[in-house]
């Protein structure tokens, strides 16, 4: 997977493909294509560079083309005993960052927004711009990668990114109890990777040293009848973002439908029905609109989409 070409060459070629004029969007795996609105008709579609550019496991960083699939990225990381925060849902690295949605086990894996150390993107002017820096710790200048993650490509089109990686845990174990109280389960554990609750049953993902996973498994046995399972339950189709407190009382939230799975301690909720629109903070909206206007005055990047 490692690509040997010069770092700048592929970015320059991508910048040329994006060009300085006309509506343009990057197409990745199309797994979240309609999120925030599909690109308007007549938008030119381009693809981002593909492949691992540089991987230094001991630095806990990897530089990849944004067009690389998350599956390919994960394979390279797994071969070196590492992983990262990006969820594998059949899409690309650039897509996962542009969408910014977390995996259900974000308590173990980390948040997507914290994974992007550096983003090299193509600006609305067709120029290569670097946000952030290559090291795991960096406060040189403003926190521009944070504005980019979750922006749906409306501020810049991602070409290459440097991601923070982490050691993969020695042991991963999913446990399931048909009936359990989710809060005592969550509070009994030091750092569970996930605690899921569907109103009756609880699923727990434990990970780390085997001895620790064993100890936490034993602690859970005191709370309910847990048994080991393959993985999480199937998730209902619609993703909600609520407070952890609301996730605990998910059954009483209006409009979520018959079935739900809530990520306890996090606030992600998967439900039968879409989340009702949430009131926007108008002053925040003004800042976001000004940012869009400053970064993309002609609204040529992913027109029709709004994060």
């Amino acid at each position: 997977m490692t690509v040997s070409t010069e770092v700048g060459t592929r970015l320059a070629a991508f910048a040329e493909a994006v060009g300085p004029t006309g509506p343009v969007a990057v197409v990745g795996g199309r797994t979240r294509w309609d999120l925030g609105g599909a690109p308007t008709e007549g938008t030119r579609l381009v693809t981002a560079p593909v492949g691992v550019v540089d991987y230094q496991p001991q630095e806990m960083t990897i530089r990849v083309g944004a067009g690389t699939t998350v599956a390919d990225l994960n394979q390279v990381l797994a071969d070196a005993g590492q992983r990262c925060a990006l969820p594998d849902r059949g899409g690309t690295v650039g897509g996962a960052l542009a969408v910014g949605q977390n995996d259900i086990d974000l308590l173990g894996r980390g948040r997507v927004r914290d994974a992007a150390l550096q983003i090299d993107y193509i600006s609305a002017e067709g120029r290569v711009v670097t946000a952030g820096g290559p090291t795991v710790k960096n406060v040189s200048g403003f926190n521009l990668p944070k504005a980019l993650v979750g922006s749906l490509g409306t501020l810049g089109l991602f070409g290459e990114v440097i991601l923070r990686t982490n050691p993969a845990p020695a042991t991963v174990r999913w446990l399931h109890a048909e009936r359990a109280e989710p809060l005592p389960v969550f509070e009994a554990l030091l750092r569970p990777a996930a605690v899921l609750f569907d109103g009756q049953a609880v699923w727990v993902k434990l990970e780390g040293h085997t001895v620790d996973v064993d100890a936490e498994s034993r602690a859970l046995e005191a709370l309910a009848s847990f048994r080991e399972v393959e993985g999480p339950p199937p998730l209902p189709p619609h993703r909600w973002s609520v407070t952890p407190a609301d996730a605990l009382r998910a059954a009483t939230l209006p409009g979520q439908g018959e079935r739900f799975v809530a990520a306890i301690g996090v606030g992600l909720l998967f439900a039968d029905c879409p989340q009702p629109a949430r009131p926007a903070d108008l002053a925040a909206r003004q800042v976001a609109d000004r940012m869009k206007q400053l970064f993309d005055p002609s609204c040529r990047l992913n027109p029709g989409r709004r994060p």
Binding site: S241, A288, P307
Partner: peptide, 27 residues
């Protein structure tokens, strides 16, 4: 904000709508 407006950036939920202005503001 420098305009004098008061705004809430981010939220207690894990994936608030819109750009991550909270993250952009930190630092």
């Amino acid at each position: 904000l420098p305009s004098g407006d008061i705004v809430m950036l981010g939220g207690l939920d894990p994936e608030p709508d819109g750009l991550d202005l909270r993250g952009a503001f930190v630092g």
